[in-house]
């Protein structure tokens, strides 16, 4: 038997989340936009940077802001020899826990340094601001080591003239993650067959029902399915709806019909498009057949079948839908 196709494909999952900050986080980010850093006083008097909304020990809502310095001391650090694509710095750098002057609790951010040897717990660092702070944690572009010999450039940078006075209440947070997806064995087998223009389901060894598209198990029995069953590309409409809104990434224009179709010989339905008919003529029990894309366009995808269209065969009675043999229904 031929080696099963292993189907892998990279994909990205992501969205640019629009996060409202609330007053505490907002105050901190507004400060960053103005090149100032604010912490908050905890129930026990300690100053926490960045500010927490709620005290970790008493659960009290916190609201006493305290401005802190823009230099601090490294309390711990690590060296990222090979930065990851998502990291804020793309040459080797350090992550560090930095306790800013005036704060009692360290914050985590990155430290730019030429070499690992420059880093040390207890070393002094200073904020390096982004060129155009906008109210985001990366307004602190990174921290840089302060040479003890040189005078610190004052506890705070001169405040950038605020571009507008309205406080930051929102951030746009892009969260995009990259994955490499590998299809399961049963779906891969199905897709390898459909690439050849063949529809193939799997039969449950216990209840003998045929599942297409197959997932490797009979959900009702909880047993693995192995036996392949080749099915024709004729089907019966089990149910349907007329859709007025477009499907993401699909060129089909509303209003269009999607239907739950049961292939001859299968015992479950799948959703697909119906076309080459009046929407109003679609009905339960209607016989349809697949219209395939040109063979040259076939890939590992259900949409090798462009849609199903009605064929001239008698309707299937409702009671027989999902129970037809592979040979179909001739009334």
């Amino acid at each position: 038997m031929a080696q099963p196709d292993v189907l892998s494909q990279p994909f990205e999952l992501g969205f640019t989340y629009t996060r409202s900050t609330g007053p505490v986080v907002g105050r901190f980010l507004t400060g960053l936009r103005d090149r100032r850093i604010f912490g908050i006083r905890a129930s026990d008097g300690r100053v926490i940077v960045p500010p927490m909304e709620y005290d970790p020990n008493t659960a009290a809502a916190l609201d006493e802001f305290v401005e802190v310095g823009q230099q601090g001391t490294i309390r711990s650090w690590c060296w990222v020899k090979r930065p990851r694509a998502a990291h804020p710095l793309q040459q080797p750098f350090a992550w560090a826990m930095i306790q800013l002057d005036g704060a009692d609790v360290p914050m985590i951010h990155c430290v730019a340094a030429a070499a690992e040897e420059e880093l040390a717990t207890g070393a002094r660092v200073q904020v390096k601001w982004a060129d155009e702070p906008r109210g985001f944690i990366t307004d602190i572009r990174c921290f840089e080591l302060v040479d003890r010999k040189t005078t610190a450039e004052g506890a705070t940078n001169p405040a950038a003239p605020a571009n507008d006075d309205s406080p930051v209440t929102r951030i746009d947070a892009p969260v995009y993650l990259h994955y490499n997806f590998t299809a399961g064995r049963a779906p891969a087998r199905f897709l390898a067959r459909i690439k050849e223009g063949v529809l193939s389901g799997q039969r449950c060894p216990r209840c003998a029902n045929v599942y297409i598209p197959p997932r490797g198990s009979c959900p009702a029995c909880g047993v693995a399915t192995e036996e392949e069953v080749v099915l024709p590309d004729k089907a019966t409409v089990q149910s349907f709806t007329i859709v007025a809104i477009p499907i993401p990434n699909n060129p089909i224009k509303p209003p269009f019909v999607i239907a739950n179709l049961v292939l001859d010989g299968a015992n479950i339905s799948f959703i697909h498009l119906l076309s080459e008919c009046e929407n109003s003529e679609v009905h339960i029990g209607q016989r349809v057949q697949a219209v395939w894309k040109p063979q040259a366009e076939w890939g590992y995808a259900m949409d090798n079948i462009r849609y199903f269209r009605p064929i001239d065969e008698p309707d299937v009675p409702v009671a027989m839908i999902g129970k037809l043999p592979v040979t179909g229904w001739e009334g």
Binding site: Y17, R19, T21, V25, L29, P50, S76, W77, C78, W79, V80, R84, A86, H87, P88, W95, A96, M97, M107, I108, H109, C110, T121, F136, I137, T138, I171, A173, V175, L177
Partner: peptide, 28 residues
């Protein structure tokens, strides 16, 4: 990198601080 998105959504997740780096700071 996936696990970095468990972190504070305003202060840490946007920096993509990975879990190995956090553990490394703990180890130090």
């Amino acid at each position: 990198i996936v696990l970095s998105q468990q972190l504070d959504p305003y202060y840490l997740a946007p920096l993509w601080v990975d879990n190995v780096s956090l553990a490394a700071m703990q180890a130090r």
